[in-house]
Design a protein around this nucleic acid. Structure first.
Length: 461
RNA sequence: UCCCCAGUAGCUCAGCGGUAGAGCGGGCGGCUGUUAACCGCUAGGUCGCAGGUUCGAAUCCUGCCUGGGGAGCCA
């Protein structure tokens, strides 16, 4: 007999017929002449109830089952006599596949703290919360690919090992095969020429520069892959390894990019609500009672557009007392972003045209000479979820901006070549996948929306 | 990296100078088509680590480690 998934069984039109189900025991209770086993196979949030009569030859085995055991069950699917589930399985055979010593198995029937579950990341997928998280995360990843594929974007795989520190921002993880105890030296310094690639290399912080190469050939592309930051950030919103989605669009300006970002967010949130409804309801009930209403609000409203200059004026006239100063030329702090999106507007805000001094060299300079065509999409609670810009496509201005940023243009010869040969206006943004899942599910800590979080001092799993 | 808070039983916590506690989970027994079932009994702890103060430290002090919240950096 072929194994049926719990999800498919519970979705059947009618009871009846033999079934084979396999999964892990959530709980087991006895009641006189009957024993009930709740099993889950991760295909859905719901458990399947297995009913075993005392007269069954397997009853003694069933009595010994506990949370965490894996079992294989055959039986007949019937309408449930009890409340709480539509169907249940009257067991004919119950086979123990793998025991889980109840003296040692750390998961209990009751709720655990998320902090504790992080310490047992190899077992937490078996909990309701992390099963739901995995399914929602999967659904949103699928929705992202679907969104771009339906619009004719090409999925580009950009390298994870790089020699250029994109944006000149952030600490990067060094990649090396040198003997760290006794590295080869030249003139006293470590000789990178002896290293695997013959020069210093790092884990990428962004696939943007490579995505630009393909945008200037295939027009509409996106990346979706891991990125790395060696920042010593200890917050509920930062990871050392996270997944980023980076569309890059040729013949597109910042207005077109902002439209794309808005359509994109609405589409993937819509997908999560429609296709992960059961899991989303779970998060809404247990973690953030407003998350579904928030997502529906986003889907059904248009994003507010503000220039940086307008945002600063709003903040200055807000009457709020901020911890950090607000002034034109200073970057917006978390508290400022949250005021704008949470209190002032109550929905996502797209802030554009930031001062050139606080943004990256590759962002297109406006005619005023003071601002660049950058945009941040701010959402309630998380703050910045998307950062993007129209890229500087004019070679002379790009070169000048690189020199002002203190970058060695020689290292970016290929990036400059893109402007030298057949340059076109283009724009792109980056979306932190985990922050998006975090926002959609209402989970407080980003470490709980990625299977194996990498944070400072944490790589156990 | 900075500021704040917390580390006591497998889990969640109480105790805050004078002999280590509860609930849940585990074990044993009972009971009932049960829904994180219920009832009774029971086992279980170098009080994060290292120093110090004290007649006496889980409790006070110092340092370190780990976790959490906030900030910076950012996605």
């Amino acid at each position: 007999m072929q194994r049926s998934r719990v999800k498919d069984i519970l979705n059947r039109e009618a009871a009846g017929g033999p079934v084979l189900v396999q999964g892990w025991v959530k709980t087991r209770r006895s009641s006189g002449a009957v024993s009930f086993i709740q099993i889950s196979d991760g295909s859905t949030l719901k458990d399947l109830q297995i009913v075993v009569e005392q007269s069954s030859p397997h009853y003694a085995l069933v009595e010994s089952l506990n949370t965490g055991c894996s079992v294989s069950v055959t039986g007949e699917l019937v309408e449930s006599q009890g409340r709480g589930q539509k169907y249940e399985v009257n067991a004919q055979t119950v086979q123990l596949l793998g025991p889980a010593d109840p003296e040692e198995y750390p998961l209990q029937k009751k709720r655990h703290t998320l902090e504790f579950l992080r310490e047992i990341a190899h077992l937490r997928p078996r909990t309701n919360t992390f099963g739901a998280m995995a399914r929602v995360r999967n659904g949103m990843a699928y929705a992202i690919h679907r969104f771009f594929q339906e619009r004719g974007f090409q999925y580009i795989q950009t390298p994870m090992i790089t020699a250029s520190d994109a944006e000149g921002a952030g600490s990067m993880f060094r990649v090396t095969t040198l003997d760290l105890q006794e590295p080869p030296r030249r003139d006293g310094a470590v000789d990178a020429a002896e290293d695997f690639f013959g020069r210093p290399t790092y884990l990428t912080v962004s696939g943007q520069l490579e995505a630009e190469i393909f945008a200037l050939a295939l027009s509409d592309v996106y990346t979706f892959g891991p990125t790395f930051r060696a920042e010593n950030s200890n917050t509920s919103r930062h990871l050392a390894e996270f997944w980023m989605v980076e569309p890059e669009v040729a013949f597109c300006d910042l207005d077109g990019l902002a439209e794309l970002a808005e359509d994109f967010l609405k589409d993937i949130f819509r997908y999560a609500l429609d296709n992960c409804a059961e899991d989303m309801a779970f998060f809404n009930q247990w973690y953030d009672k407003s998350t579904i209403a928030t997502l529906e609000g986003i889907i059904n409203s248009s994003f507010e557009r503000l220039t940086y200059t307008e945002a600063v004026k709003l903040l200055e006239s807000s009457g709020e007392s901020f911890e950090f100063p607000v002034a034109w030329g200073l970057d917006l702090q978390s508290e400022h972003e949250r005021y704008l999106t949470e209190k002032r507007v109550g929905r996502p805000v797209v802030v554009t045209d930031y001062p050139r001094g606080i943004k990256a060299f590759y962002m297109r300079l406006n005619d005023d000479g003071e601002t660049v065509r950058a945009m941040d999409v701010l959402v309630p609670r998380i703050g910045e979820i998307i950062g993007g810009s129209q890229r500087e496509e004019r070679p002379d201005i790009l070169l000048e901006r690189m020199q002002q940023a203190g970058l060695d243009a020689a290292n970016y010869w290929w990036y400059l070549d893109l402007r030298r040969y057949g340059t076109v206006p283009h724009a792109g943004f980056g979306l932190g996948f985990e922050r998006t899942v975090q926002f959609a599910t209402g989970m407080q800590n980003i470490r709980d929306v990625i299977p194996f979080p990498r944070t400072p001092k944490n790589v156990e799993f």
